[in-house]
Simulated scan of single mutants.
Amino acid sequence: MGWWASWSSGSGQDPEDRSTPPSDSSHTEEKPKNRWLWPSSTDSDRAARAASSQTGVDWNSKLNAFDWKQFTEPRNLIPNVLLTGGILFVVYVHQRFLRRVPEATAISPADFRKRSLLGQVTSVGDGDNFRLYHTPGGRLVGWGWLPWMKVPTDKKELKDRTIHIRLAGIDAPELSHFGRPAQPYAHEAHQWLTSYLLNRRVRAHIHRVDQYKRVIATVYVRNMLDFPPFRRRDVSLEMLKRGLATIYEAKSGVEFGGEENERAYRAAEQDAKQRGRGLWKDKNFESPREYKIRMGIEYPLDGGHQNKNSEGTLSTLTRWLTPSRDAPRKRGQKER
């Protein structure tokens, strides 16, 4: 009965209870729970704060500072250079080759004698000039077959959207304008040029702008049915060969597009004269230059003034509306 005495003496431990081992002083310290192999975020934050407090680093300025060194690294520098270069190249190609020129006044002076315009002929006004709708890039970029890249056919849509082109180096017979009669072979030249160019794609090598805001250009056209196929033909040269135009002769403003073109044009005109083609069938034919002088449209090559009996309608109206400079002086002399 000794065991009962020990239990009843006030001991708080059941002598028969063996579920809990007797406490030992070496096991009184508790072990940390959920311990991982790497420190937690709170531990790293505490370590960072402790380090900053010891070294005195201002973390606000450190985090807000911009590190420019990252742009000098090859992994960042090379892609940026390639991307910027690609964008600049696309912009250059668009401005140089794919930007549409709506009319003659939009052509940069730096482009003359250096650039050509590809487009479709929308109308033919005379035997040596027509209207061109600029289509940069042609069919390769979608002109003619993409729905949003169609050449307009309505005159209202074409207004202020075409370039007035004058063929370089030639002068075709004049049609009737402002009450003046048409020249012989003027309709033949106009009909031939209309059938040869209307609604066709041509390439115009631009030279300069004349006094009528027209772009003087050497125009080339290709025809699939030509021999050999798609042979490039100079429109001005073809008209001279057929006797439908003459060499452009004027006191100023003559443009052939180069000495080589001028020699070819003069040889073609001389050959048409000898063969009696077109307007050269008539030995008494009045050239477009002579016709303009007689009608008062232009002055002779020697710079002399035209005869009053041969003044045209336009020059007569100008003389009536513009008083002579000598009129006040003569009037004063008579009063004296």
Rank of each mutant, 00 (worst) to 15 (best):
L237P: 10
L237R: 10
E238S: 15
E238C: 12
M239N: 07
L240K: 12
L240R: 08
R242K: 15
R242G: 13
R242M: 14
L244V: 05
L244N: 08
L244G: 03
A245Y: 03
A245R: 07
T246C: 15
T246W: 13
I247F: 11
Y248E: 08
Y248F: 13
Y248S: 09
A250Q: 02
K251Y: 12
K251I: 14
V254D: 10
E255Q: 09
E255N: 04
F256S: 06
G257A: 05
G257N: 03
G257M: 01
G257H: 04
G258D: 04
E259Q: 12
N261L: 02
N261E: 07
E262K: 13
R263K: 13
Y265K: 04
Y265N: 02
A267W: 03
A268I: 01
D271R: 14
D271H: 01
A272M: 04
R275N: 12
R275T: 02
G276R: 10
G276I: 08
R277H: 06
R277Q: 04
G278W: 04
W280I: 10
K281T: 11
K281W: 05
D282K: 11
N284Q: 13
N284T: 10
F285C: 04
F285P: 01
F285I: 09
F285H: 14
S287D: 10
S287H: 02
P288L: 07
R289P: 00
E290I: 05
E290Q: 14
Y291S: 10
K292V: 00
K292W: 01
I293K: 14
